[in-house]
Each structure stands twice: as structure tokens, then as C-alpha cells.
Write a protein that binds this DNA or RNA. Structure first.
Lengths: 131, 131
DNA sequence: TATAGGTATGGGGTATAGTCCACGGTCAAG
DNA sequence: CTTGACCGTGGACTATACCCCATACCTATA
């Protein structure tokens, strides 16, 4: 798969793909073609990687953090013990984010209930969410 | 409350507070003191606002989006009908984020289970999460 | 009234995450 | 063998969210 097809498969702009390559987030192989600047060849595996990057981004990770996570993951790939450890650290981080999100949701829902009931005294206070 | 005390109360750097003011996210009043550059005076209400900004940031909103959300909120403050509407839009957005987060969590948990069970065929596929 | 310390403004610099463009090389169809 | 579409590289540029500094002014305390 060449870069334009990869762009269609991942729904990413070509420039963004090249940017991710310079950052080390994607490491396509080089084909024999292309002369002094060999063409980059992408596998289905790279499509999965790109999708994972996007998912991690929506969860609030920076590209630097994503790179670190993925390298950490690859480093432990030989040992299933280590892989599980890495995954569980990631799960723990996501659960923290989920807790913050739940706090915000219950804050907003409480506010709706309070308005509908017309009870200002039960108003939820943002102060209670130390984030 | 002057800016240094406000900085302590919100645990924000003074420069960040001034930055938020230039962006319109905080609108402190001006005291009579300070001569040609009157001092900015913060209320408890502003502490709440700052905390809300930080909460919204952890949920992935940009300062521009936060400004829009807050102005939308203030615009409907006179009508409880409208306030509830605005709140429910925000709740819906957060629920989307929560769904993405839950998808990621079940993906990672599925992967852990799969490794522990040693069943590569049941491996969860990132392809299933179109984000 | 001298002075230490707090304040406002403006401008410059940084990191992140792209986005755009011009260049020159390459490939494949006709 | 020409032509149009594609490829890689390098550099310039943008927007966001700060961070830091110099300057000048103001206040409270001794």
C-alpha cells in the first residue's frame, strides 16, 4: 500500500501521515522503487496503528505520550507478563479519566435536577471536584 | 481578592490567569486602586469559573470551545428552560466521550483476557472501533 | 519618604500538532 | 519518450496554550 491509498484507508491527510512518520509513530518499509527516495509501503498493521493513535488522541494523550506508550508496549511484547503489566497501567490511566468524566456528568446532571426542582440549596458545587 | 491570592486559590500560575483574562475566560472587576492600570479584583465566583475551566480542559475541550460553552450558558441564564437545554447538550457531548473511553477500556481489557487465556483468535481488533 | 514587593502591559519565546508549498525525482500509460 | 499523476524532502507557516522578561507604575510598611 502506497501513501495515498493509506491516506484513504485511515482517513488521514497525507501531510499528517508524513508528520507521524517523522515523529516515529509510523514506520513504513521502503520499496525498491523510487530511486534515491524509495517509496514508503504500508501494511494493514499500520492502518491499525493509525487508528489506535487516533483513539488515544481522543482520550487526551499527546503524540509524545502515545509514542512512549507504544514503545513501552513493543518493548514488552516478547513477555506476556510484561505486556499485561503495560496494558493495566493504560487501563488505570483511562479509569482515572473516566472518573473525572463521571464527576463532570453527575455535576451537570445534578444541576439539571436542581433547576427542574427549583431547589437552589441543593445546587451542586464545582468546588467539590478537585481536578 | 487580588491576582496573587487568586493564583493561590486556584493553583494557577499568574501568567496563565492573565492569559485567560485576555481570552475572555475570566472577567475580574477593576478596583479603584492601581492608578492608570487599575488592579484586577477576583470574586469567589471566579474561583469556581477557573475550576470549571480546568475540569473542561481535562475533558478535552480547547479554551475556545470552553469560552463558547460558557457564553452559551450565560446567554441562557435568564431562562431555566434554555439553561437546561444547554446543560443537556453538554451532557450529550460528555456521554459521547465516555462511550469512546468505554470502547477503549473494553478493547484493552479484552486484550488482557486474551493474553491470559492464550487464545489469539479471540484477540480484540482495533478495527472495530471507528473513532 | 525610602524601599520592598505587588501589579499591568507588551513583546518575545517555547512546545505541540499539524498544514502548505516548491522542488526534484519516479512511474506508468499512450 | 513524453506527459500526467504520484512520491519524498525540506522549509515556511499556522493555531493553541502557555511561559518568561523588561518596563513602569502603585501600595503598604518602616
Amino acid at each position: 500500500m502506497l501513501i495515498s491509498e493509506f491516506a484513504r484507508a485511515t482517513d488521514l491527510p497525507i501531510d499528517t501521515i508524513r508528520f507521524y512518520i517523522t515523529k516515529g509513530l509510523l514506520k513504513p518499509e521502503r520499496s525498491a522503487k523510487g530511486g534515491s527516495n524509495p517509496y514508503q509501503v504500508f501494511k494493514q498493521e499500520d492502518v491499525t496503528a493509525a487508528r489506535m493513535i487516533r483513539l488515544q488522541q481522543t482520550l487526551g494523550y499527546s503524540l509524545g505520550e502515545i509514542l512512549a506508550l507504544n514503545e513501552e508496549y513493543r518493548a514488552g511484547e516478547h513477555s506476556s507478563e510484561r505486556t499485561v503489566e503495560v496494558l493495566q497501567v493504560q487501563i488505570a490511566r483511562l479509569e482515572e479519566k473516566k472518573a473525572a468524566l463521571d464527576a463532570a456528568l453527575s455535576f451537570l446532571r445534578g444541576k439539571v435536577d436542581w433547576i427542574r426542582a427549583g431547589k437552589p440549596d441543593d445546587a451542586p458545587r464545582i468546588q467539590d471536584y478537585h481536578c
